[in-house]
Design a protein around this nucleic acid. Structure first.
Length: 709
RNA sequence: GGGCGUUUAGCUCAGUGGCAGAGCGUCUCGUUUACACCGAGAAGGCCGUGGGUUCAAUCCCUACAACGCCCACCA
C-alpha cells in the first residue's frame, strides 16, 4: 500500500511550513500574482480587477484574543476566495498604537510596578510606551501569521508611521481651513481617574439613584423664593443664573428679577429658555455653565447674564474656587453634595429631598468612574453638522448621503438604521486628549494628543496613500470593511465621514459587521471570569484550520459568536476526516492513471454535476457574505456526501481487476477531492494546501492561487 | 424616553410560504481499502403566546411576553 500521506495530520509541523511557503511565494502581494492566474470568465467582464480590504489594525497593547481570530478568519476567507477567483487582491495589515486604550493598559502596568504616570516625565513615558507597543506589535504579527492570514506584509502600516502622521496632520489643517475645526472653552467629558477628556462615545450610562434636592433661592424683590430641583447642590456656588421656560405661567413675575445664591449670596438673574422642561422638578433650572453642557448652551444664548466663568470643581473632582464656601473647599464632589445639603438645611433653604429619583449618570467607559463635566480651554472640536466654509456638505451629511445612495451598504442591513439614528444625534467631536500616548496635536500651545479615533478614522486612505505609488488609485475605495459592531460609532462612522471628506470618495463599499465572541453559556469572555479561550493555545492543540472553521460555522453577521472548545474539537475531527479521505484517494492512485482519459458513466456524471451545484452554491454564498452557509455546505458535502457515500461506493470499483475501471473510479474521486480542496481552502487553508502539495498533478502551483473555477 | 435584536431538539445555533435541520450530548450496534479524532442506526420538537393573511405559516402581518443590546443634554 502506498503511503503518500502520513497516517496522521500534525498541524503544528505543517502550519509553520506552509505559511513560510506562502510567504516566500510572494503571492500575498497583489503585484506578484502569477501571470498564469487568469481571471475567471465572469471577472473578465468585470471592470474592477482589484480587490482590497484594509485590516482593522489590532491594538498593539496585548496578545491576540478570539475576537482577533474571528475577524482575521472572516477577512482571510474573503481575500483567499477573491484571490482564487483571479482578482488582484490586497489585504493590507497594520497595527494600532491605540492611544487611550494603550495608555490605560500601560497605566495599570505602572501601577503594578508601584509607579504612576503623572510622576514620569512626559517624553520618558512616551518612549517607554513606544517600546512596549513595538514589542507587542511584533508578537502580534507572529500570532497573526499562525492564524494563516494571507495579508501583504510588505505593505504593513503602523498608526504612528511618520507618513501616516503627515496625512493626519494634513486632514487637521484641511478641517481648519474649512472652518470645521475650532478650539475653544467648552464643557467636556472629564475622567477624574484618567485625567483626560473623552468624546461622547467614550462614555457609558448607568441608571443610579440620584437624590433630587429642592433648593430655595430667595428673590428679595418679591419677598418670595424660587425653588430649583437639582441633583448636584455642590455646584450651586458655580451658578450664574436661573432659567425657566418662557411659557411657564407660574414664573411670569420672576423673570428679569434676581435670586440669591443660597451658598454664596451672589445675585442670579432669572431668565427664560425653551430648553427648560416645565414638567421636570419645579420647572426652574439653575444655570451652571462650568459643569453642565446644557447649562453652558443656555448661557451662551443669553449674553445678558454676562460671561462669568466660575468653576468650583477641579481636575481631581474636588471643590476649588474663589466662590466656594470654606466648608466645602477641598471636598470631593460627592462629599460636598452631602455637605452642601446640610448647609442648606441649616439655613432652612432646603425644601425637600426626593430620595427615589433615578437618572442616568455618565461614566468613563474604561474605568466606570463618574464623568465630571468640566469646562476646559483650548480643546479642539470638529463640527459634525455644519457646512464647511468653502462649500459642500457637513461631515454628517456627507456620510448620510453616501449610505442613502447605497454607495456604502451594511451587512446586516439593519445597522443602516442604527447608523442613521446615531448620525441624527451627532454633536461636535472633542478630539483633544490630555494623555501622553498618541499623535501630538500640531499646535504650539498644547501637549494634547489626538483622540486615537481621529487618526484611525483616516486609516483606509492614509494607508493606501503611503504604501506603494499607485496603490491609492488602484485600491481605493476598498471593497469591504469587516469589523465588530461594537465600534460602529467609534470607527466605522468616522471613517465614512473623514474618508469622504478627505478624498471625495467613500472609503469602502461594504461594511460587514460581526458580533462579540461568547462562551458556550453565552457569557462574555473576560479574564476575570476565567472563561477566556486563548486562540494560540487552541491552535497548538487542534490546529488553526479547526479554530477557523469553528469560528465560522453558525456565525451570522451582526450576531454574537458562540464558541467552545468542544466545537473546535469537533472541527478538528473534520480536519482529520479531510486528511484521511485524501489518504484514501491517494492510496488508490496508480502511476499512469493521470494519462488515462476517464470515461465517466451516468453515475459519475451525476456526482460531478452535484459537485458543480455545490461549487455554485458556495460561490454565491461567499459573494453574498454568507460565510457560515458556505462553510456548512462544504463541510456537509465533504463528509456526508463525498466521504460517507461516494468513497464507500467507489471501493468495489477501485478493487476491480480491470485497470480502466479502476482508473475511472479513481478519476472520479480524485476530481471531487481536488475541487473540494479548492472550495475548502479559504476556510481551512493549511491542511488543504498541504494535501494539494502532495497530489499527483503536473505543473502544480500553490493552492492559494489555484483557480476557483 | 426612543430604537433594535433574539425566542426552533437536553445545550449551542442554522433554516425555508409546501414531510422540521446541523454540531455537541444521550442510547444501541459495528473494526470492511482511509478515518474510533470513525461508521450505521435510534430517541428527542405545539418552531415563545394570542390573533390575522393564505389552499397552505416555524417563515408574512399584528398584538403581547420573556431575555438581551444600542442610543439620549430629564437638570
Amino acid at each position: 500500500m502506498k503511503q503518500l500521506l502520513p497516517p496522521r495530520y500534525e498541524p503544528k509541523e505543517v502550519e509553520t511550513k506552509i505559511y513560510e511557503l506562502w510567504e516566500k511565494s510572494g503571492y500575498f502581494n497583489p503585484d506578484n500574482l502569477p501571470k498564469s492566474h487568469p481571471p475567471s470568465q465572469k471577472l473578465r467582464r468585470d471592470k474592477q480587477k482589484s480587490f482590497s480590504i484594509i485590516m482593522p489594525p489590532p491594538n498593539a497593547n496585548g496578545s491576540l484574543h478570539l475576537g482577533h481570530a474571528v475577524f482575521t478568519t472572516l477577512q482571510d476567507i474573503i481575500i483567499r476566495f477573491r484571490r482564487m477567483q483571479g482578482y488582484k487582491t490586497l489585504w493590507l495589515p497594520g497595527a494600532d498604537h491605540a492611544g487611550f486604550e494603550t495608555q490605560v493598559v500601560y497605566d495599570k502596568k505602572l501601577e503594578k510596578e508601584g509607579r504612576n504616570r503623572f510622576q514620569v516625565p512626559r517624553e520618558e513615558l512616551y518612549q517607554e510606551i513606544l517600546k512596549f507597543t513595538l514589542k507587542n506589535k511584533k508578537i502580534m504579527e507572529s500570532q497573526l501569521r499562525r492564524l494563516g492570514v494571507s495579508c501583504d506584509w510588505s505593505r504593513e502600516k503602523f498608526t504612528l508611521d511618520e507618513d501616516i502622521i503627515k496625512v493626519v496632520h494634513h486632514t487637521f489643517e484641511k478641517l481648519k481651513k474649512d472652518e470645521l475645526l475650532y478650539q475653544g472653552k467648552r464643557v467636556v467629558n472629564w475622567c477624574v481617574r484618567h485625567q483626560t477628556s473623552l468624546s461622547d462615545v467614550e462614555t457609558k450610562y448607568e441608571e443610579r439613584i440620584s437624590p433630587l434636592y429642592y433648593v430655595k433661592y430667595e428673590v428679595p424683590e418679591l419677598k418670595y423664593c424660587i425653588i430649583v430641583a437639582t441633583t448636584r447642590p455642590e455646584t450651586i456656588p458655580a451658578d450664574i443664573a436661573i432659567a425657566v421656560n418662557p411659557s411657564d405661567r407660574r414664573y411670569k413675575k420672576f423673570i428679569g428679577r434676581s435670586a440669591i445664591n443660597p451658598l454664596n449670596g451672589e445675585k442670579l438673574l432669572i431668565i427664560t429658555d425653551d430648553a427648560v422642561d416645565k414638567n421636570f422638578g419645579t420647572g426652574a433650572l439653575k444655570i451652571t455653565p462650568d459643569h453642565d453642557r446644557l447649562d453652558e448652551e443656555i448661557a451662551n444664548r443669553h449674553p445678558e447674564i454676562g460671561k462669568k466663568s466660575r468653576p468650583v470643581i477641579n481636575f481631581f473632582g474636588k471643590m476649588e474656587g474663589e466662590n466656594v464656601p470654606d466648608s466645602l473647599l477641598g471636598l470631593k464632589a460627592l462629599e460636598a453634595r452631602q455637605k452642601a445639603a446640610e448647609i442648606l438645611k441649616e439655613k432652612n433653604l432646603l425644601e425637600k429631598i426626593d430620595d427615589e429619583y433615578k437618572n442616568n449618570v455618565a461614566l468613563c467607559y474604561k474605568c466606570g468612574n463618574q464623568i465630571e463635566p468640566l469646562s476646559l480651554a483650548n480643546q479642539w472640536f470638529i463640527k459634525m453638522t455644519e457646512k464647511p466654509a468653502s462649500s459642500g456638505l457637513s461631515l454628517r451629511d456627507l456620510a448620510v448621503k453616501a449610505v442613502k445612495e447605497k454607495k456604502i451598504r451594511f451587512i446586516p442591513a439593519r445597522y443602516e438604521k442604527v447608523f442613521f439614528h446615531w448620525m441624527r444625534n451627532l454633536r461636535d467631536w472633542n478630539i483633544s486628549r490630555q494623555i501622553v500616548w498618541g499623535i501630538k496635536i500640531p499646535d504650539k500651545n498644547t501637549t494634547d494628543v489626538f483622540d486615537t479615533w481621529f487618526s484611525s478614522g483616516q486609516w483606509p486612505f492614509a494607508t493606501l496613500m503611503t504604501t506603494k505609488k499607485g496603490d491609492f488609485k488602484k485600491f481605493y475605495p476598498t471593497d469591504v470593511m469587516e469589523t465588530g459592531h461594537d465600534i460602529l460609532f467609534f470607527w466605522v462612522a468616522r471613517m465614512i465621514m473623514l474618508g469622504i471628506y478627505a478624498t471625495g470618495k467613500v472609503p469602502f463599499h461594504t461594511v460587514y459587521l460581526h458580533g462579540l465572541v461568547r462562551d458556550k453559556d453565552r457569557q462574555k469572555m473576560s479574564k476575570s471570569k476565567g472563561n477566556v479561550i486563548d486562540p494560540l493555545g487552541v491552535i497548538d492543540l487542534y490546529g488553526a484550520d479547526a479554530l477557523r472553521i469553528a469560528l465560522i460555522v453558525g456565525n451570522t453577521a451582526g450576531n454574537d459568536i458562540v464558541i467552545s472548545e468542544e466545537k473546535i474539537r469537533g472541527y478538528r475531527n473534520f480536519a482529520t476526516k479531510i486528511w484521511n479521505v485524501s489518504r484514501f484517494v491517494l492510496m488508490n492512485y496508480e502511476p499512469g492513471f493521470e494519462k488515462i482519459k476517464p470515461k465517466f458513466g451516468k453515475y459519475d456524471r451525476k456526482n460531478l454535476k452535484d459537485l458543480e451545484a455545490i461549487r455554485k452554491k458556495i460561490t454565491k454564498d461567499l459573494e453574498s457574505f454568507r460565510f457560515h452557509h458556505a462553510a456548512e455546505t462544504i463541510y456537509h458535502y465533504f463528509w456526508h456526501a463525498f466521504a460517507d457515500k461516494i468513497i464507500e461506493e467507489s471501493k468495489p470499483r477501485l478493487q476491480s481487476k480491470n485497470r480502466t475501471e479502476r482508473a475511472n473510479a479513481f478519476s472520479l474521486i480524485f476530481q471531487i477531492l481536488k475541487t473540494s480542496l479548492i472550495l475548502l481552502h479559504p476556510f481551512m487553508p493549511f491542511i488543504t494546501e498541504e494535501i494539494w502539495q502532495k497530489l499527483p498533478i503536473k505543473k502544480k502551483k500553490l493552492l492559494m492561487v489555484e483557480k476557483w473555477r
